[in-house]
Nucleic acid binder design. Structure first.
Lengths: 152, 152
DNA sequence: GTAGAAGTTGAAGTAAGCTTGAAGTCAACC
DNA sequence: GGTTGACTTCAAGCTTACTTCAACTTCTAC
């Protein structure tokens, strides 16, 4: 049992497709050594990195954001627990915001769509313009946390 | 003040771009009458329909799913509150599942990524294969509600 | 009756996040 | 040393949900 992993082994253990691993590498999210023949040789490190990527995706981060987060890791040494903790701490508030938005939506469903009104003048969930014109231009349907693109 | 709405009026009132309205029509989510000249004339009905679409999108439904839901509405008569309520009731459990999954992820962050382990053998969030091999083939990272495509 | 705004269509473009295919290479085993 | 299977690259394709563009047409106002 060698101390590196092939792309297939990493794929199997991480749950990512090999093509996804190559794609992540091309996008700067992963790195891999090569054999003299040019084949990828991953260190076990990559599994933690992929675990982070998987978790980050679940939190709703884009690959761009994930790469930016990974770029905060130290170059040269293997990241420590503290390193991983630091870069994942911001997820907490993001998740809280997402959960809060979904709960608001659910409660809105109970009290609004649940009642069947679902629109026109008195429903805060579905009625953007008529009741929110005072809030400025453009319709804002719901709490922004549900719109990932609104996160810098 | 006529009893129909132009595409611009609907766009302004609904918050959807006119191009999105046309797209939705091409995808079978909306319908519109036409003037003799071929321009769209929307009944006010469409606003409630769009409110439903907006809400459904926030719940995380794809346009395909939304169209399927809208197809359950009665043809021929204007949908009643009860009609809207019926087709939106399933959102409740979906939202609950999504919220539950996010809360599990958040709690996992606190107790797992938060501690820095983030992987390898003892972390239920980031470690799919090593601890879950007994659950069958293929890695299952996290509760499925976070994977929209897993909903029929 | 004509300018100009608003609307029409169909096709193509965009973005993210990959997957698939073609064509060729590397490596392990008999 | 040859077959087989894992692997390589690069380019193209896919899906969702739209937007943008080009080239017209239709209203509305004056």
């Amino acid at each position: 049992m060698d101390d590196w992993l092939t792309v297939t082994q990493v794929a199997d253990r991480s749950g990512f497709a090999a093509s996804a691993l190559r794609y992540y590498e091309s996008e700067g999210l992963l790195e891999a050594d090569r054999t003299p023949g040019g084949r990828r040789r991953y260190t076990r490190d990559v599994l933690r990195r992929l675990a982070f990527i998987a978790a980050a995706k679940h939190v709703g981060l884009s690959l761009d954001e994930i790469r930016a987060a990974l770029d905060l890791l130290p170059r040269g040494r293997t990241p420590t627990k503290a390193d991983w903790t630091r870069i994942s701490r911001s997820w907490r508030s993001r998740l809280d915001a997402e959960i809060e938005a979904l709960e608001a939506l659910r409660d809105g469903l109970d009290g609004c769509i649940g009642c069947g009104c679902l629109s026109l003048a008195r429903c805060r969930i579905s009625n953007p313009q008529d009741t929110m014109a005072t809030r400025g231009p453009g319709a804002a349907f719901l709490p922004d946390p549900l719109h990932p693109e609104s996160h810098g």
